[in-house]
Amino acid sequence: MTQPVIPLAQPTAFRRAVRALLALAGALLAVPALANPEHPSPWQLNLTRGDSGLSHDVWDLHMAVFYVCIGIGVVVYGAMVYALIRFRKSKGAKPAGFTHNTTLEVVWTVIPVLILIGLAYPATHLLVYENNTNGSQLTVKVTGIQWMWRYDYLSYLGQPVNRVGFLSKLAEDSNVARQADSGVSPWSVVSAHGVHDYLLDVTHPLVVPTHTKIQFLITAADVIHGFWVPALGWQADAIPGQIHDAWGKFDTPGTYRGQCAQLCGQDHAYMPIVIKAVPRAEFQQWLVDQENRSRMDAISRTAEVTGAPAAPQG
């Protein structure tokens, strides 16, 4: 599931500098390889390819426009650098007097338009595909709250899910370490799998099945939040008074990490999102367990209500 871990001792400045150079050198060749789809890696340079056809398409579009920019850059900067070297007064260059060249001007208006059309075409397709949530098999409602997330499972494989929902907050070890003067180094916060998950770990991850089109119904309870898990290939704002629907998918089981992306107040940096993708059978079992537990909870709660006033449910 999780990838082998590179031990990350707090590196010395020198080792970091060396790594920076190596990373830069390897950058253009191994751009995708550096990015782990589950969580960010040190010296990461590029977007993650994510973990589904959708996120791969997004990544392809990203790379396409990136290379287009490189291409145009080579032409424009190339011409410019040539001019800067060649047409210097110190080299005895004499100024020409021309001020127009209609052909040239038409060319450099038309070619960019064509390039843009070439980019707009796949972008349009992908956008339409991305916004089509039809045929989802699991529906989860995601609510941003200052400063945590609430997940409610609404339906799975066409069947309504019975009261499965929970809050998901920043994990306790990160929460301790993040306090000013805590004396705990962020580097010392490590998950069971050895991932450096400082500020990227939660109390209750969102559990989802792999190979399943998941519909997210995203909203917020107080202010705007942003639901962003890079591996999904998108982010969606969580807006009070609105349901924003989007869909995503995971092909490989794993723990995918993201963060709230919209400034939402003082603890905006401290409301991570963790999605645990598990094989479908495992998910089925998990869901049943959760349903049972919530049924038990409901019974005990009724008992409480009849006895003493219930404590507010989180």
Partner: peptide
């Protein structure tokens, strides 16, 4: 650019250690 692509949100005072190096640079 790298930080953003790697997944670092804006407007945060603190971040995961994976973002440490480029931030220092």
């Amino acid at each position: 650019h790298f930080l953003g692509l790697a997944g670092m949100p804006r407007r945060i005072p603190d971040y995961n250690v994976a973002f440490a190096d480029w931030n220092m640079v």
